[in-house]
């Protein structure tokens, strides 16, 4: 069972307190009416599904209820970073390099 850190509560808690909501930083297009069919389908369905360092949305559903983002290595299950919703995506290569040390 993974140990997940909630950046709002400032605590690590077992995975069962959270729900994972898929890839992060997939923003809903600002003006859907002006979005092409292809772009809309990409927004709906296409995910990078990376083997390795991946950015996910998590929600502290049985805690504070907030959504936040986490960088996880999908091979080792190691979390490299947790950060609040709205904060920019970190440099994944940099993070991976640091974790590899």
């Amino acid at each position: 069972m993974l140990l997940v850190y909630c950046p709002y509560c400032g605590v690590s808690r077992p995975e069962t307190e959270f729900s994972c909501r898929g890839e992060a930083h997939i923003a809903r297009p600002a003006d859907p009416a002006q979005t092409s069919d292809e772009d809309w389908v990409n927004f709906l369905y296409m995910r990078s599904n990376t083997k390795g360092v991946y950015v996910e949305r998590w929600r502290h559903i049985h805690g504070c209820g907030r959504f936040f983002n986490a960088v996880r290595n999908t091979v080792s299950d190691d979390f490299l970073k947790f950060y609040k919703a709205g904060e920019p995506m970190p440099d994944l290569e940099e993070l991976a390099k640091e974790a590899g040390k």
Partner: peptide
Amino acid sequence: FATMEDYLQTEWP
């Protein structure tokens, strides 16, 4: 409820 929270928190804060 979860869907409403999701849109509220992440799309329309």
